[in-house]
Write a protein that binds this DNA or RNA. Structure first.
Lengths: 252, 252
DNA sequence: TCCCAAAATTCTTATTTTTGAATTTTTTGA
DNA sequence: TCAAAAAATTCAAAAATAAGAATTTTGGGA
């Protein structure tokens, strides 16, 4: 069950991030299509908590700098090593495509670092974007780091949803993909979740964290380049001292 | 009316900021004294929004780096000039007491920048801390920048709450304080809101923003030093080119 | 491999919250 | 200065949620 007002807090935060300047109650209500009275209650709660304030008298509300100080504290405690950021940056520069670091998150994989391509047509992802674990190369690069037992636990909860014609729709198909990736030496995807989107991914174990690195871009530019992109990723990983592993799909 | 689940999102965020590492559902539920099922729903909502993730498989949840990227965007759009931060730092260093920049926020004043004293006994405030507009020197330094008409609008909504023996309990008393501050050349407070806390404040108009700067510390150390602290504040403001104003309490 | 304890997840209704409409306050323009 | 419009705030019925208890799943130890 979704907690509506928790989602509303997030929507309000993103509303302000997109807007970039204060908004009155009426502007918030109109912008998010919320009833005035609901907006009034939510804003009042966040004001009383110290997370919204009125920068100018009757000039509307804006998130207080407290968000920033809390977020910095959180980020300091959950550090992604600079070497990993640099790896993504290097690979992003060399391939010219959007490059991201993925981490498992429930049924999905979440990007915890993103280096966007500058091409006019590119894969637009941001930190926090999630994609299905089983229907993406970044996801399968994480699945391949799990034991068969762990994967089976995951499959038990998985409900297959058809995002496109190429979305894998069975456990057998996913396991096949993992075996093929092992032979090939890298994970790949072709419009399984987002139409026209092609990806190449490698597992990126980091201590006990299971991460993956993925390069993704439009079909037109990337489909044929997949082997070359994989070569670029693997070369950069070796240069920077990351282990190259594609554990057997049947490993226990 | 308070929106419970909005407050819960904030509490969860601060729970993680204080904890510094991932927590399982059970740990969150115990730590915040929430029912398991409610915790389950709230965490699920934040996960689906991309604001919580599982850094390690079954290793508990942690806020995703998305908080950080959104908070940075927000902070970039609501900049407090570096000159103001430097002013607070200078004054904090020179007085040895906690120094803050206040901004109006509904019925209160919120600290949007804080430079904490390093003394073992000191005023502990953080970004986002609020204090009553009428019962603090930082607040009256903001009130003094408002026209009588605006102040009257504020007084109409004000409900007088007795925080201590010296809390001002009438409009006349507040207006008296403003007049005295005008003669004195600075605003001051003595345990009006927090017992044992003494403050000295100056208005800090910044374009159309009405800010104030306040130095606050324990009674034992600060009561007699108030004139000296005021001198330090004013000298620093003049050096750094900030206007010294104590608008008449009766200005329209 | 099985069993047990702990954690996660589901389910249902009593309770709380949401929100449309009404009211009050503030701002704008004449 | 006044009137009209816009914004903020209140309120109570309607609707959605919270959370206790039950169930299922997981991980660790024998």
């Amino acid at each position: 069950m979704q907690v509506r007002q928790a989602a509303n807090v997030i929507d309000l935060l993103e509303f302000f991030a997109a807007r970039g300047h204060p908004a009155t109650l009426a502007e918030i209500a109109d912008g998010l299509e919320w009833p005035r009275s609901s907006t009034f209650n939510l804003v009042g709660t966040l004001v009383s908590k110290g997370y919204l304030y009125e920068p100018r008298y009757r000039g509307g509300y804006y998130p207080s700098p407290r968000w920033h100080s809390v977020a910095v504290t959180l980020a300091e405690n959950d550090p992604l090593p600079d070497s990993v950021r640099q790896l993504a940056d290097t690979i992003g520069r060399e391939t010219g495509e959007t490059t991201a670091i993925g981490s498992m998150s429930s049924q999905s994989i979440m990007f915890i670092h993103v280096r966007e391509s500058r091409q006019p047509i590119r894969y637009n992802a941001e930190i926090g974007t999630t994609v299905p674990l089983h229907a993406s190369s970044a996801g399968r690069a994480i699945l391949s780091q799990m034991s068969l037992k762990e994967r089976e636990a995951f499959y038990r909860k998985l409900s297959f949803e058809k995002y496109s014609d190429t979305t894998p729709m069975s456990v057998a198909r996913i396991e096949d993909d993992l075996r093929e990736a092992e032979k090939r030496g890298y994970h790949q995807s072709d419009s399984e979740y987002i139409t026209d989107l092609v990806g190449v991914a490698m597992p990126l174990p980091l201590g006990s964290r299971r991460l993956s690195i993925v390069v993704a871009g439009p079909l037109s530019r990337c489909l044929k380049r997949r082997p070359m992109i994989a070569k670029t990723i693997i070369a950069a990983m070796q240069r920077e001292g990351f282990p190259i592993e594609l554990p057997s799909a049947s490993a226990s």
